[in-house]
Simulated assay, not measured.
Amino acid sequence: MVLWPVVALVGFLVLTGLVIAMGTSTTARYEREQRAAAPSTTRASAGEPVGARAV
């Protein structure tokens, strides 16, 4: 009598975990591709160091 609700709950949890795992790996791959395609804007591209003052 209690077996089928337990089977349904375990199946739901397994499928939820599968969806989360697939989404996590896909998101990580997407972010890697975006970082590789985008130019680096965080580094200083000028010849002077960050925080240097003009004299």
Results as ranks from 00 to 15, higher is better:
1 M>E: 12
1 M>D: 12
2 V>C: 00
2 V>W: 06
3 L>I: 12
3 L>P: 05
4 W>D: 10
4 W>M: 10
5 P>H: 00
5 P>W: 06
6 V>E: 09
6 V>C: 09
6 V>A: 15
6 V>G: 02
7 V>C: 13
7 V>D: 08
7 V>N: 03
7 V>Q: 13
8 A>T: 08
8 A>C: 13
8 A>E: 14
9 L>S: 07
10 V>E: 07
11 G>T: 08
12 F>M: 08
12 F>P: 04
12 F>C: 13
13 L>I: 09
13 L>P: 02
13 L>W: 05
13 L>Y: 03
14 V>I: 15
14 V>N: 04
14 V>C: 10
15 L>C: 10
15 L>D: 06
15 L>I: 01
15 L>T: 06
16 T>E: 09
16 T>D: 09
16 T>F: 11
17 G>P: 00
17 G>I: 00
17 G>K: 00
17 G>F: 09
18 L>V: 10
19 V>S: 13
21 A>I: 02
21 A>H: 08
21 A>T: 02
22 M>C: 10
22 M>E: 11
23 G>T: 01
24 T>N: 08
24 T>P: 06
25 S>N: 11
25 S>Q: 11
26 T>V: 11
26 T>F: 09
27 T>R: 06
28 A>E: 03
28 A>D: 04
28 A>R: 05
28 A>T: 04
30 Y>F: 03
30 Y>T: 04
30 Y>A: 05
31 E>Y: 07
31 E>Q: 15
31 E>H: 07
32 R>F: 02
32 R>Q: 11
33 E>A: 04
34 Q>N: 04
34 Q>E: 04
34 Q>P: 03
35 R>K: 15
35 R>C: 05
35 R>N: 00
35 R>T: 03
35 R>S: 00
36 A>L: 05
36 A>K: 03
36 A>V: 04
36 A>P: 05
36 A>Y: 02
37 A>L: 15
37 A>V: 02
38 A>V: 03
38 A>M: 15
38 A>L: 14
39 P>S: 05
39 P>A: 10
39 P>N: 02
39 P>Y: 07
40 S>D: 15
40 S>Y: 09
40 S>M: 13
41 T>V: 15
41 T>S: 09
41 T>Y: 11
42 T>I: 11
42 T>H: 10
42 T>S: 14
42 T>E: 14
43 R>V: 14
45 S>A: 10
45 S>K: 14
45 S>V: 13
45 S>C: 02
46 A>Q: 11
48 E>P: 02
48 E>G: 01
48 E>S: 07
49 P>R: 12
49 P>L: 09
49 P>K: 08
49 P>D: 08
50 V>W: 12
50 V>T: 13
50 V>A: 13
51 G>I: 01
51 G>A: 07
52 A>G: 00
53 R>Y: 03
53 R>C: 01
54 A>S: 08
55 V>H: 09
55 V>D: 10
55 V>G: 13
55 V>W: 08
55 V>K: 13
55 V>P: 14
55 V>R: 14
